[in-house]
Simulated scan of single mutants.
Amino acid sequence: MGSSSSIRFFSTLAQSLSSAPLEHTHTDADECDLEQSDPDALLRECEEVLRNRPPRPHRDFVRTRASASHNPQIRVMQWNILAQALGEGKDGFVRCPMEALNWAERKYLILEEILTYRPDIVCLQEVDHYYDTFQPVLSSLGYQSSFCPKPYSPCLDVRGNNGPDGCALFFSRQRFRLLRAHHLRLSAMALKTNQVAIVATLQCRITDQIFCVAVTHLKARSGWETFRGAQGLNLLQQLNGISSTESKEQEQSIPLLVCGDFNAEPGEEVYQCFLNSPLGLDSAYRSLSADGTTEPSFTTWKIRPSGESCSTLDYVWYSRHRFSVDAVLNMPSEEQIGPDRLPSYHYPSDHLSLVCDFSFIQEPHRLM
């Protein structure tokens, strides 16, 4: 995959975003023949490998005002983990030593973050080591998964790459049953784009509740605000179509969880489209603010040759009338992040993970 001929080939393809279909998507079968790993043992292994690195920033869960539900909680993680090829070959983190990005250790930092919080659902972006790392490791921990690569991933322009990056969705087999999975290629202004999404319909094995969870990664960079807005509208339309179909089959509305790196600040059009969508969505991390209407100051903080960037770009959207936000993982302080920002020896990505605890709000007719 890393030969110069393949780099030239994929670079040429990327010149024009045609309507080529999604390829090389993957969804696990429900069965898993792998021997199950002990998550505590794997966490200790991570800590041993990383013993010469500074510890990760300590973060606490903050209980919210809405945490009155007695239903079983669902822990959701949203995280752009930074594609290895981009971190080493394209992103230009000028204050991050190359040794800190060494995959042999950085993968343990990523796994340590996941294992520390033990989410029931994991939504990741910029995954370029799905097949050789995340799928086998997390499958052995009891997760079922689905992967959708970008049609023309910029990772393929990097020598020695590990294939295209994309979105990956993992969920606990013990907790959920997969009913359906959709791999979407997002459109903007009637044109197919390089951005994708996964939408999975899951059934909770404890409550029998059915819901949809989606993961996406919208177009990056300033100057593309209108484009991102069009992508967001297209995703909302497709989510509405999928949830409407599911609702007709279930004879009740299907709640949504939508996780992603939207590459958009709260003032952007795409954020407002989601906040004001007829799907009734809200952003879980707004519950950290005193008035419940303000996002955190940042979810990514990096230094590139163009300068320092401290932005809120990542979100966990949820159906406000169907889910209760019981707790969210708070953000580290500037002091914890450090003067060289992210990524670093103590944190593997330029984006911080978002972790939320949700519970279903019982519908009135189901209480009778």
Rank of each mutant, 00 (worst) to 15 (best):
Q238R: 15
E251T: 05
P39H: 12
K150M: 07
S67N: 14
T207F: 10
Y285Q: 08
C204S: 15
C46N: 11
L235K: 13
Y117R: 11
Q362H: 09
T133N: 10
G267M: 08
V215E: 00
L50R: 06
F262N: 02
H26I: 05
V137M: 14
D261L: 09
F61N: 08
D33N: 10
E112G: 08
E335T: 11
K90A: 14
L288V: 08
R8Y: 05
V127W: 00
N162S: 15
C123I: 06
S243M: 02
S306N: 04
L257Y: 01
M77E: 05
S6F: 11
R65G: 09
C123H: 03
G166Y: 00
P151Y: 00
A14P: 06
N276F: 12
K219C: 11
A20I: 10
L236M: 04
D350W: 02
I337Q: 00
R205M: 10
A20M: 10
R175G: 03
S172N: 05
R173Q: 14
S333F: 01
T133V: 14
S287T: 14
K107L: 01
R180D: 12
K248F: 10
P266A: 09
Y152D: 09
R175S: 12
K192D: 01
S309D: 10
V316T: 11
K219P: 00
Q135A: 13
F10N: 06
G142P: 00
R159H: 09
C212V: 09
T207D: 03
A41W: 08
F10D: 02
N80V: 04
A83G: 07
Q78S: 15
S19A: 15
A104P: 03
S333E: 01
Y130A: 01
L354E: 04
D340T: 09
P278T: 11
E48I: 10
L13H: 01
P164V: 06
S253Y: 02
P119K: 08
L138S: 01
D30I: 07
V316W: 04
S289I: 01
P278D: 12
R118M: 10
K219R: 13
F211N: 07
L109D: 06
L111S: 12
T300W: 07
P278S: 09
S333P: 07
R53F: 13
R175V: 07
Q203S: 14
N71I: 03
A83M: 04
H346F: 06
L43C: 07
E105P: 02
D340V: 03
A181Q: 13
P348K: 04
I110R: 01
F93L: 11
Q250K: 13
N234C: 13
P305C: 03
L50K: 02
E88K: 13
P343N: 09
F211L: 08
F262H: 03
V62G: 06
S11Q: 15
S146E: 00
S3H: 14
R173K: 14
Q84C: 08
K90E: 11
A181W: 05
T216W: 08
D291P: 03
S333W: 06
P54I: 02
T193E: 06
P364T: 09
A66P: 01
S18H: 10
L233H: 11
K107R: 15
R95F: 12
K219N: 05
A190Y: 10
Q174P: 04
E268M: 02
H321P: 02
N240T: 15
Q336I: 03
S309E: 08
S244T: 14
T207P: 02
R175K: 15
T226E: 12
